[in-house]
């Protein structure tokens, strides 16, 4: 495979079966998005966010791009913006891990921090304030930009259909909702019997304690009607499945992959015997090493320690 530059080397990721971790009579496959150039599914999204903006005349040469993100989207955007010549500002919670900060900085992104206690909501707030103050900046805003789901509709889903035409169900973790919405719609258009399930992160008490009940946020990108169900997964279960993947199937994935695997195994018995299920693996485990997620030790303690960020 040859490509003109890194932005063209996105996608066409492996779809790998899990013969040892699938329930008897079913086959679960992981779409290994960690194989993208900057190591996550968000390379697809970053490319679409930028190229759609260029196509619609919203972005012109040299213009600053501004985005709230705590990680993968920022890293993907940083690489794309680098090769396309756009300066980038990422707004991130101040507790974002060192790996992410270093990667973003290396790619030349400017970092602005939002209060850790406000989580992703805080980054969104600060980015909106910055965008309002700077009329030259372009904010793609992955939570509300149709290009996010479109990337999955036009690239991720067709790859799955080509590799596994008999796919009966799709599972992905829920963040912006771009993955479940884009892949889900395309798979259902192709075969209306395909089922779509979201694995929703259940954070630790601390995160919810800081939220007000009336400031709940449902991203505009998420189309709740495409879902057949939504199942929450706590950090203990997600981490257990993530580690099992490495131990049993030799796959080193991020924690949200474990969450999707938990849901994939749970829903198999709702599908016809022999069904094939695709679960999204948004990234590899590398960026989570410093959280201790893969360190030896008591699983409950480690799960509690990461329950505030989970897969952010």
């Amino acid at each position: 495979m040859r490509f003109g530059d890194i932005s063209q080397a996105i996608g066409n990721t492996p779809l790998v079966a899990l013969p040892r971790l699938s329930p008897k009579g079913y086959t679960i496959h992981l779409k290994l998005e960690g194989h993208n150039p900057t190591g996550s599914v968000k390379d697809r999204v970053a490319r679409y966010l930028i190229e759609q903006a260029e196509r619609h005349g919203l972005l012109s040469p040299g213009q600053r791009v501004l985005e709230p993100t705590s990680g993968n989207t920022g890293i993907g955007l940083a690489a794309i913006c680098k090769v396309k010549g756009y300066p980038l500002t990422c707004v991130l919670p101040e507790n974002t891990s060192q790996e992410r900060r270093q990667l973003l900085t290396m790619f030349g992104a400017e970092l602005v921090f939002s209060p850790a206690t406000e989580g992703s909501n805080g980054s969104v707030r600060v980015a909106r304030e910055l965008a309002a103050a700077d009329s030259h900046a372009y904010m793609p805003f992955q939570y509300g930009n149709a290009a996010n789901a479109l990337a999955h509709y036009e690239t991720t889903a067709p790859e799955i259909i080509a590799d596994l035409p008999q796919v009966a169900a799709f599972v992905a973790g829920l963040g912006t909702g771009g993955s479940v919405t884009g892949v889900g719609k395309r798979l259902k258009r192709w075969n209306p019997d395909v089922k779509v399930f979201a694995a929703e992160p259940e954070y630790g008490d601390l995160v919810y304690g800081l939220r007000n009940l009336d400031e709940g946020y449902v991203p505009e990108v998420l189309d709740v009607d495409v879902l057949d169900s939504r199942i929450k997964v706590d950090s203990r279960k997600a981490l257990g499945a993530t580690r099992e993947l490495a131990e049993v199937e030799g796959i080193f994935a991020g924690v949200s992959t474990g969450a999707s695997l938990v849901v994939a195994r749970r829903v198999c018995n709702r599908l016809p015997e022999g069904a094939h299920v695709v679960a999204m693996s948004p990234d590899g485990g590398w960026k989570y090493l410093s959280t201790g997620a893969y360190a030896p030790g008591d699983l409950d303690e480690i799960a509690t320690a990461i329950s505030g960020t989970l897969w952010a």
């Binding site: 993100t69 990680g71 909501n121 963040g175 909702g177 009940l213 946020y217």
Partner: peptide, 10 residues
């Protein structure tokens, strides 16, 4: 019972 929160963006 859980308050809805914005999802993570790894």
């Amino acid at each position: 019972l859980m308050p809805a929160v914005a999802g993570g963006d790894g």
